[in-house]
Amino acid sequence: MVKKGLFFDFGGTIVTDESDHRLHLMMTREIVKKYRLNLTPEEVDAFFNGFVKARLLTSHEKWPIIINAYKNAFTILLTANKILVGKEDLQYFESLYLKLHKNYTEPFPNAIDVLRELSGEFYMAIISDIDNNIIFPILEKLNILNLFKHITTSEEVGVGKPNPKIFEVALNKAGLKPEDAVYIGNSLKHDVEGARKIGMDYIHFGEEVKNWIELKNEIIRRYKNGG
């Protein structure tokens, strides 16, 4: 079973959710300190997460720009604490949000080395729900953007996974049929189900394989050597 295309999820597959959680707490600590809020960073983080998750409930139908959802949550938070929110505050938040994601998002162990190795054998691309102004700077900082033929995001397509449209757009860019590609992701709902709906093969990262060395070996076993 030789596959021509490897399509990867990004958050939780190439880069860790743990690093994302840490940088969000760094962000909320900065906000609590700057605005002298009578709240803990953890409380602010929980509020932000709950607000954004609610906006993502229908993301498979219409994608909300994630940073805009966070800016709305930030505005509500400050307003509730009787702080007038101006243009400079929103610029501060956006700058902090983008800077921390770029500088503190971390890849899984061995992910970069494995991606570089696989890029010589397969057509590689990314399908991600991460917004453009987050994913591209991170890929550039990690020096792996050039490994991928293209990046397809929910922001670009207008819908989130598991909507088949985002997978269709990515496959069309590659000129590949679903049966010629495999999708690797960590979410059963968004990644596995999305790939299954369109007829792509899939590897459930974190379940079928636990790390990037196991992932590399599974890809080679299934797809390079003909299964």
Rank of each mutant, 00 (worst) to 15 (best):
A125V: 05
F10W: 13
P178F: 08
G12T: 05
P178N: 11
L176N: 06
S19Q: 08
I198N: 00
P137K: 09
N103E: 15
I130Q: 14
E18V: 15
M200F: 08
L39K: 06
F136M: 15
L118P: 09
E214F: 08
M124L: 15
N225D: 05
F167M: 07
N68K: 15
D191W: 02
G199L: 07
N211C: 05
L56K: 12
Y70G: 07
L37Q: 01
F122L: 06
I127G: 02
D129I: 13
A46N: 11
N211I: 01
P137A: 10
F47S: 04
P137R: 09
L145K: 07
K4P: 08
L25E: 09
I220F: 05
L145C: 00
I166M: 11
L142A: 00
E156H: 12
L23M: 07
L23G: 01
V182D: 02
F47Y: 13
E121R: 08
S95F: 00
E88C: 08
K173R: 15
V32R: 04
K177A: 09
A73E: 14
H190E: 14
E156I: 13
S19C: 08
I151K: 02
I138N: 03
H24L: 10
A46R: 13
G194M: 04
E61L: 15
E214I: 13
Y183C: 00
R116D: 14
H150C: 15
L78D: 02
M200E: 02
F7R: 02
S154T: 00
D20A: 13
E207V: 11
D201G: 05
E156T: 11
S154D: 00
I151C: 09
E218I: 04
G11D: 14
E179A: 00
K71D: 06
F205C: 00
V85P: 13
R36Q: 14
L118W: 14
T40F: 04
K210F: 03
G226S: 09
D20T: 12
P41G: 10
D180Y: 06
E156M: 15
T75G: 02
P64E: 08
A111T: 03
K197R: 13
F148R: 00
Y70A: 11
V169F: 06
E208P: 10
N146C: 11
L139P: 01
